[in-house]
């Protein structure tokens, strides 16, 4: 089951790339579709950040991960490189748990 889902996910992700390259997709030029496709990753990434920071299972929680996200946000604002942002978030959570 797990592997079947994984294969479907991989096939979909690759299929979307190939479709973009090989199909003459006039409908993709529609500005509303372009906007929707552009907004999807924005919304999904924001939802992933919110759920993975403020929940454990089905419970909403406020713990060191919120502080870690705050530090990561500061790193982003300071234009830190990708790995530095991730490391700043992880290090903040690790240090706060030591206290």
């Amino acid at each position: 089951m797990l592997w079947a889902g994984l294969l479907v996910a991989a096939a979909s992700c690759y299929g979307l790339k190939l479709a973009g390259l090989s199909l003459p997709q006039a409908w993709l030029q529609d500005p509303r579709i372009q906007r929707t496709v552009q907004l999807l990753p924005v919304a999904l990434l924001a939802a992933l950040i919110a759920t993975q920071t403020f929940s454990t299972g089905h419970r909403l929680v406020l713990d060191v991960r919120a502080a870690a996200l705050g530090v990561a946000a500061i790193a982003v604002l300071l234009r830190a490189p990708f790995l530095a942002v991730v490391a700043a978030g992880a290090a903040t959570a690790a240090l706060l748990r030591l206290l």
Partner: peptide
């Protein structure tokens, strides 16, 4: 190591 806080930071970036 705070690795559970790493994915949200990555998503934010």
């Amino acid at each position: 190591l705070g690795l559970d806080a790493a994915p949200p930071a990555a998503f934010l970036a």
